[in-house]
Amino acid sequence: MNLFRFLGDTAHLASILVLIHKMHTTKSCRGISFKTQALYVAVFVTRYLDLFYRWVSLYNFFMKLFFIGSSCYILFLMKTKFRPTQDPAIDTFRIEYLLGPCTVIALIFNYKFSPTEILWSFSIFLESVAILPQLFLLQRTGEAETITTHYLAALGIYRALYIPNWIYRYFTEGVVDPIAITAGLVQTGLYIDFFYVYVTKVLQGQKFELPA
């Protein structure tokens, strides 16, 4: 464990807590893509199957449980309590365009052609694009509540921090994880446009609004 990864995981944890906090305080899941949240459940469940057969550490164990549990809880909230505040008409990204290619790529690029390793690869590739329905929704509405942008910013910071973590690991442990690195770079790249608006508007105290 190094500082970059720990801070990255902390940002990831914080992003989820911010999202849950947003839903409870505004009593709404307006502006949140159900599809992106559902993809995260798929990501965590397929990636953390190793909970059943590999022990890493107490930290690793509880973080995995938290990510699976909290993502399911978010879906649950969106489908029950806050269902009336959700607008499927604007959450229109076609996720089959993500699931299909990720399945094919996972079958080609994996560290071992075994069910759990293929699912792990799949989860890495899927995570890298899982934010697209959310960014698409944001693009469509052209604006976002400030708290929603903090959620997205924390999620982007989490991914960005994994990059120095891999560089650090390359120099200290001499190991590279090409699948995670490639997907991680793609995922971080998707946030660049968002971050530009976040830094130039939200952090200056303005509302998040995309240029017309």
């Binding site: 995981d9 190793d50 560290y111 001499g174 190991v175 590279v176 994880d177 090409p178 995670a180």
Partner: peptide
């Protein structure tokens, strides 16, 4: 460097 999956990462 060796190419391998980092099994302790989340």
């Amino acid at each position: 460097a060796k190419a391998a999956r980092e099994k302790d990462e989340l």
